[in-house]
Write a protein that binds this DNA or RNA. Sequence first.
DNA 1: GCGCGCCTGTCACCGTGGTGTCACCGGGGG
DNA 2: CCCCCGGTGACACCACGGTGACAGGCGCGC
Lengths: 219, 219
Amino acid sequence: MRVLVVEDYEILAAAVAMGLRREGMAVDVCADGEQALEALAAARYDVVVLDRDLPGVHGDDVCRSVVAGGDGTRVLMLTAAGSVRQRVAGLGLGADDYLPKPFDFAELVARVRALGRRSAAAVPPVLEYADLSVDPARRTAFRAGRRLDLGPKEFAVLECLLRQLGRPLSAEQLLEQAWDAAADPFTTTVKTTVRRLRVKLGDPPLIDTLRGGGYRIGG
Amino acid sequence: MRVLVVEDYEILAAAVAMGLRREGMAVDVCADGEQALEALAAARYDVVVLDRDLPGVHGDDVCRSVVAGGDGTRVLMLTAAGSVRQRVAGLGLGADDYLPKPFDFAELVARVRALGRRSAAAVPPVLEYADLSVDPARRTAFRAGRRLDLGPKEFAVLECLLRQLGRPLSAEQLLEQAWDAAADPFTTTVKTTVRRLRVKLGDPPLIDTLRGGGYRIGG
DNA sequence: GCGCGCCTGTCACCGTGGTGTCACCGGGGG
DNA sequence: CCCCCGGTGACACCACGGTGACAGGCGCGC
């Protein structure tokens, strides 16, 4: 398992790296956000152990770009002040786990290992088109690095369209796939949902309309 | 699977080509963007492995023209500086995957193979005649590389004619196949639709008229 | 238990583009 | 020479999709 540790406090970074290596993991270390982004672009990691307060590029931004990468890499956030509010904020960025300092070392190892297992299982299923990336397993969607806040139905429709990249889906087909069988065949909810999706996706437009033929992304 | 490698750094190009050939792929190599565009015009490739920084025509432009071709060819972008920003930019051009240098060779092979599968899945159901190609699943039609903007009925008629390549279809037959059963048998809509189709298809004319016998493409 | 907010679905309205009709024209064959 | 078939251009209709506003419902937090 490949792990990247991003931590500016050198002593701590070294200690964490050594501990994880003793568990049989391949560990790289970065001291700031810039280095971290470079390392992440150069190789795929299963887990990133990420200090939130970094010099230069902030940990939150690193986290965002990892998630936007959409290759299933998991993020374990470390932070000094362990308020619940911060925890929530970190998870909102797409972090997969959170650990307030000071932490029990055994717990860190256990969590990294757990995230590694999830990473291995989650590598393939990330849908991408242009600057849009959608992870059905995590229910996250990003456009140009910005996280999209989508409702369940909106997310389902977007997922359907991306799974049929380049091919149009009629309102009826979307209704079948994203709603349950009890859906009223005469409902207008599909067009409304598509509309809200379009607003949230922003510019430039991604969803084409084929008059009389449905909606499409790509092609 | 046919692969085109576009890379000006000769040693690297040769190494990549050799590696892919060992995997059983048919590989061609170009050293610059000009050659690449020529090769792409001359033959259909499943995947293009494309260096972003090319002498002459830039990799981005090559990528754009491949995507515009609309024949399902997939693009794997290679780039030296592996920033996330660049990654996003590359995908925004319509590239299907992205790999920052230096890359793991096994990963390159795996990604090319994955793209090849996607390409193969997208290719088969395409109707072609001369410089016209129609993809019913995607509801797309191209003439000489230019995309045609067709209405549902126009598209349906074109599809019928192509499925009966070389054989004529009477107005009645077209009415049966492209309109629903409630169609007025005395309507003149077929000839109007064929006319609009002809205009959109442009020159040289593709649809022949057999006086008293219907319309035909090919033969 | 209560209230607030978000997601969802409905409705009415409107702009528009695809579609069908019509009248006219041109040419080839009987 | 006439007639019929098909090409051509203009026009009108209408259904489809976009848009905005509103209401019900569910969950969450207080």
